[in-house]
Amino acid sequence: MFALYITHPQVAIDPAVPVPDWGLSGRGRERAALAAASDWAGRIGRFVASTERKAVETADILAAGRVPVETDHAMGENDRSATGFLPPDAFEEAANWFFAHPQESFHGWERAVDAQARIVAAVERVLAAHDPTVPIAFVGHGGVGTLLKCRLNGTPIRRDRDQPAGGGNLFAFRLADRSVTCDWTAMESWKGF
């Protein structure tokens, strides 16, 4: 059986609102709805999302009321609250630094190695009590999703392993051995297994 890690799609960016409280934009909702109509979404028997609004909204759309959405605070994005909102260009520079220096903190951000340990532990904790015959989807964020994917692949933390810009991507892995079976793919384009 399989698991998916799905990142939230486009958000409504508002510098006056804390990043964890950002919701999906109209385009993000549209993309999530397209994915929810796919065959693979209907096969998911369990959704576990980060507690951040954009992740919960994505999971709710994908679950389409078929199954309840669980939340787990440990699945949140890397903690960047020390710098607050960064304009897009500055954010991209900071993200490049975050991935290039995983053992160090960018101006008070959670270190990449710590965020990786947290997301891996959260996923493993959920899977330890999960029925392996039921497909499961974890819904969260690009940064920690990339860190999880690096660990599952046994590769170093690097930005070139990150999802394409815009979010709303997924990768799949087998529950039996945690091997990644597909690279980042737009959630509305993935054809499933």
Rank of each mutant, 00 (worst) to 15 (best):
Pro68Arg: 08
Glu93Ala: 14
Glu52Met: 08
His73Phe: 14
Pro18Met: 14
Glu93Gln: 15
Trp22Ile: 05
Gly76Thr: 02
Asp60His: 04
Val69Glu: 04
Gln10Tyr: 06
Leu86Tyr: 11
Ala94Val: 12
Ala64Pro: 02
Leu34Pro: 01
Gly23Thr: 13
Ala16Lys: 15
Leu24Lys: 12
Asp60Tyr: 00
Arg43Val: 01
Ala12Lys: 14
Gly23Cys: 11
Gly84Lys: 14
Leu24Gly: 03
Asp14His: 04
Ile6Tyr: 09
Gly42Gln: 11
Ala90Leu: 13
Ala95Val: 10
Ile44His: 05
Arg31Trp: 02
Gly76Met: 06
Ser81Val: 07
Ile61Pro: 02
Gly26Lys: 11
Glu93Met: 08
Trp40Leu: 07
Ala94Arg: 11
Asn96Thr: 14
Ile44Ala: 06
Leu62Trp: 08
Tyr5Thr: 00
Phe2Arg: 07
Trp40His: 10
Val17Gln: 07
Ala90Glu: 15
Phe85Lys: 10
Gly65Leu: 08
Asn96Leu: 13
Phe91Trp: 14
Pro88His: 09
Asp14Trp: 02
Glu30Cys: 03
Arg29Val: 04
Glu77Thr: 01
Arg29Asp: 08
Ala37Met: 12
Thr58Arg: 02
Glu30His: 14
Pro87Arg: 13
Glu70His: 02
Gly45Thr: 11
Pro18Ser: 15
Arg53Tyr: 00
Asp21Arg: 14
Phe2Thr: 03
Ala74Met: 03
Ala59Gly: 09
Ser38Gln: 12
Glu92Val: 08
Tyr5Lys: 01
Arg29Glu: 15
Arg31Gln: 15
Gly23Ala: 15
Thr51Met: 00
Leu34Ile: 05
Leu4Met: 12
Trp40Asp: 06
Pro20Arg: 06
Ala49Asn: 01
Arg43Pro: 01
